[in-house]
């Protein structure tokens, strides 16, 4: 069977992302990557927790006075909503509605860009008030952890927009359905990590 075979809603498989052996392997492989990514984030999380509020004597910045909850709340809402929009994209993929997939993936990218813009603003603000990467052990651990997540967001945005552009004229088939599905899994994982960041870094930081 040709991977570029055209389908109709009636012939489109129920689980298009797992209809081919390649699709099946791709999903399992992506999950194993996500498990290893969990370990990567665990190490930077543990480092952050160990070094929180530690640094040279006379260090002026403590987590309690630094973080601003309204900004963290807006960022959380943007990322959480982008998770739902990619679920909508996968719903339309099941129904063989390609314009739906493109539209909702596009909204996901826009929400992700909004999140990224706020994160850049936040980092820029911290550096501006003197809380730079080399200011203290605490600042290094903070920027490494949250920046690592930010890099994941950037990679996810390039990945998803690349998929949208490369497949803009191809239409849905069994070649690109697993690709969209894998990108959406990765995007959900970014949200999973952010749930721990807003809890452990921002909320528990404000708690003191």
């Amino acid at each position: 069977m040709d991977l570029n075979q055209k389908f109709t809603p009636q012939t489109w498989p129920k689980h298009p992302e797992q209809a081919t052996l390649e699709g099946k392997n791709k999903i399992v492989g992506l999950w194993i990557f996500l498990a290893s990514d969990t370990v990567l984030f665990a190490s930077v999380f543990a480092t952050y927790i160990a070094l929180k509020d530690h640094g040279p004597a006379g260090m002026t910045f403590a987590a309690k006075d630094l973080y601003e909850l309204p900004l963290a709340f807006i960022m959380t809402m943007l990322l959480l909503t982008s998770s739902l929009t990619s679920v909508y994209a996968m719903y339309h993929m099941k129904n063989y509605n390609y314009s739906g997939v493109r539209t909702w993936m596009g909204i996901t990218v826009l929400l992700g860009l909004g999140f990224l813009a706020l994160e850049i603003y936040e980092f820029q603000h911290y550096v501006h008030i003197g809380f730079g990467y080399t200011q203290s052990a605490f600042s290094s651990a903070f920027f490494t952890l949250v920046g690592m997540h930010g890099i994941h967001v950037i990679i996810g945005l390039i990945w998803i927009s690349g998929l949208i552009f490369r497949n803009s004229k191809r239409g849905l088939n069994l070649y690109n359905a697993p690709k969209f599905f894998a990108a959406s899994l990765y995007w959900h994982f970014i949200d999973v990590v952010w749930v721990f960041i807003f809890t452990v870094v921002y909320l528990m930081g404000v708690l003191g």
Partner: peptide, 11 residues
């Protein structure tokens, strides 16, 4: 690589 794929027309 897609030899396992089974396409059926749904009613």
């Amino acid at each position: 690589m897609s030899h396992e794929t089974h396409v059926e027309v749904r009613t």
